[in-house]
Design a protein around this nucleic acid. Structure first.
Length: 477
DNA sequence: TTTTGGGG
């Protein structure tokens, strides 16, 4: 039908409505959007269609060759989710939604599989036997994202300046949330054909998807996290994830990575992500996510014997902090040493948690790490020659971290145990190290580990007179 | 709005 024809059809339709016998004031329809089911949406609809659906996969919004941005999603609903007549029982069927926009910020960032998207004015076609809904945000389409794990009607993000929400949608949204929770608790949803086990990753020549648990997050620098990924095939890979792009991922999360590539140039197993790659967690009812979370064990710290061999291929945290500080957030060294007196967040605190690498330890002679301490004069003196009582540790760590990588300063973190702070750090009591060869040898080993490449100390420190003293922290390797 | 690009 021509545009003219369409318009006249619309006009005559509205004429018909206006001559209905409805009493005045009630005849106006307030409902603008009829939502279609994915499997039932007509392929030959004369106009755009509107949908509510549950997201099971999404690219990160990405730029195409010429000033256009795309986000591609896989979606399901009660009408379209499990492959029928294929005998697999648990295979996912889905429709795709392709969103086009002129600007990055006009597209949704999907970080959780199981969340809900609403799309207005999409056109449906078949593409490679899939139902594909196309929606141009730069024309007149719009979208809104809803969390599946909340109960309100406000979208978490949406395109445009405002969003509409009609009364009828409340029920649609509620029902879809209920269905999503149920669906993810009884089906894997992300089926075997949708990802590659990590043990087979090395063979992949093109990009592929991953389903794994994050067993460790290491801060490489100010902008980058290094994720350690492990799945049920028992193999570990690493990947770099920009903090700004994926701000919400946490240690222990089970994630789907949409599009990863084996880094052929790396000696260790590294996956390369692209600009369109996405890392998504799952809604909490997900059976699959729970299973992987419980079955993939967190990795053990390497033992001392393997640590002493060669270079650490990955970051190793040598210490553990007391449980009572488990929820203490990490404060970078730059904050501790340059902003602790001016930052209102830090001003009134004196206990911090910080993670650092030890560049050097002073005194360099381990035998002088323990001193004799005179409680009256508060003086420490060498135990050399066998004299002196009340041995304590007095050790200074010269340290760096990601936040201070670019400057030339090193910072001092102190292990001074005269008041008991940090007394358990080395796992042995302070003693005369000129005499006690066993203790000295053990501490020399610790010194070697502490200053080794890729070794990290996660410590709780207490601020006293502008100095930071380690406490409630011990070496565990 | 343009026949978008869509596993990029």
């Amino acid at each position: 039908m021509s545009t003219q024809g369409k318009k006249s059809a619309q006009r005559s339709a509205s004429k018909k409505r206006s001559i209905s016998k409805e009493p005045k004031g009630k005849k106006e329809k307030t409902q603008k959007y009829n939502y279609v089911e994915l499997a039932k949406a007509p392929l030959t609809s004369p106009g755009p269609q509107h949908l509510y659906a549950v997201i099971i996969d999404a690219t990160f919004p990405y730029k195409t060759n010429k000033d256009k941005y795309i986000c591609s999603l896989k979606v399901v609903d009660p009408s379209l989710h499990v492959k029928s007549q294929k005998g697999t029982g648990d295979g996912s069927d889905y429709a795709t939604v392709i969103l086009y926009a002129k600007r990055f910020e006009d597209l949704p960032i999907v970080s959780k599989i199981g969340d809900i998207i609403r799309v207005h004015r999409a056109t449906l076609r078949l593409h490679k036997q899939q139902r594909q809904f196309n929606a141009s945000v730069f024309y007149n389409s719009s979208w809104a994202l809803f969390s599946s794990e909340k109960n309100d009607n406000a979208p978490s993000t949406f395109s445009g300046k405002h969003y509409s929400f009609e009364k009828q949608e409340s029920a649609i949204l509620q029902n879809l949330r209920k269905w999503a929770l149920q669906y993810f608790s009884s089906y894997n949803v992300i089926t075997n054909d949708m990802y590659v086990p990590l043990k087979d990753a090395q063979k992949e020549k093109a990009d592929f998807d991953v389903l794994a648990k994050i067993t460790h997050i290491h801060e490489m620098d100010e902008y980058t996290n290094e994720l350690r990924l492990r799945d049920q095939s028992g193999v570990t890979w690493h990947t770099l994830a920009l903090k700004l792009k994926f701000p919400n991922i946490q240690n222990g999360d089970v994630v789907r990575i949409r599009s990863a590539l084996v880094d052929e140039t790396s000696k260790k197993k590294v996956l390369i992500l692209s600009h369109y790659s996405n890392i998504m967690t799952f809604i909490s009812s997900s059976k699959l996510s729970k299973e992987i979370k419980s079955k993939v064990q967190d990795e053990k710290q390497p033992d001392k014997a393997s640590l002493k061999k060669g270079v650490n291929m990955q970051a190793v945290v040598l210490t553990e902090i007391d449980k009572k500080h488990a929820n203490l957030p990490n404060t970078p060294l730059s904050e501790l040493f340059h902003h602790a007196d001016t930052d209102p967040e830090l001003q009134n605190k004196n206990t911090f948690r910080t993670t650092f690498q030890v560049i050097k330890i002073e005194p360099s002679d381990v035998k002088e790490w323990a001193k004799s301490y005179d409680k009256k004069t508060k003086q420490a003196s060498s135990l050399k020659g066998g004299k002196g009582a009340n041995p304590i540790f007095q050790v200074q760590f010269l340290v760096k971290d990601a936040s201070t990588q670019v400057n030339n300063h090193t910072y001092r973190i102190l292990l001074y145990t005269h008041d008991g702070l940090g007394a358990n750090f080395f796992g042995i009591n302070a003693d005369n190290l000129h005499k006690n060869d066993g203790a000295r040898k053990k501490l020399e080993e610790q010194a070697e580990l502490l200053t080794k490449f890729n070794s990290w100390v996660d410590a709780v420190v207490e601020k006293r007179n502008g100095f930071y003293f380690i406490k409630d922290t011990k070496i565990v390797v």
